[in-house]
């Protein structure tokens, strides 16, 4: 299963990076969202995969019965999903507000912080 997941992860990363290299802010955001999934899948796969047995201890035992899925990457990813969602929401609102202020969704037009043809810093003392 791992090789196939590695291939899937490669496709996820390629698509998200391709979208992020665009100049349109909405496409970049879609890329960021997919990037989060790609990263989560990477963490998940590197903890090795087991089919269908969740890491839950049966009611009458004190340790899991036999092999279960690896709980550690799951715990890492679970919080990562929520945090990446929060940041996705933040980026979305940021993009939206930028669009409202600057009237463009093209990153080439967003030159407030780094304007074109910026003057030299003062040469005196």
């Amino acid at each position: 299963m791992e090789p196939i997941l590695a291939l899937t992860v490669a496709i996820f990363f390629s698509v998200s990076i391709y979208l992020m290299l665009s100049k349109h802010i909405i496409r970049i955001l879609l890329g960021v969202s997919i990037f989060g999934n790609a990263v989560n899948l990477t963490i998940f796969t590197s903890g090795r995969v087991v089919r269908e047995i969740p890491p839950i201890i049966p009611l009458d035992l004190s340790v899991p019965d036999g092999i279960t899925a690896n709980p550690l990457p799951q715990a890492l990813i679970l919080t990562a999903i929520v945090i990446s969602f929060s940041f996705f929401a933040f980026l979305l609102v940021l993009a939206f507000r930028t669009y409202q202020e600057l009237g463009t969704d093209d990153t080439d037009g967003m030159r407030v912080a780094e304007p074109k043809g910026e003057e030299l810093p003062p040469l005196g003392y």
């Binding site: 990363f13 391709y18 990477t42």
Partner: peptide, 24 residues
């Protein structure tokens, strides 16, 4: 962009594959 993205994707995929091939 497509080349850069594919290269990155391939690199990350290979990395992951390599990780899963070392003892856990």
């Amino acid at each position: 962009d497509f080349s850069v993205a594919s290269l990155c994707g391939a690199a990350l995929g290979l990395l992951l594959l390599r990780i899963t091939q070392v003892p856990f």
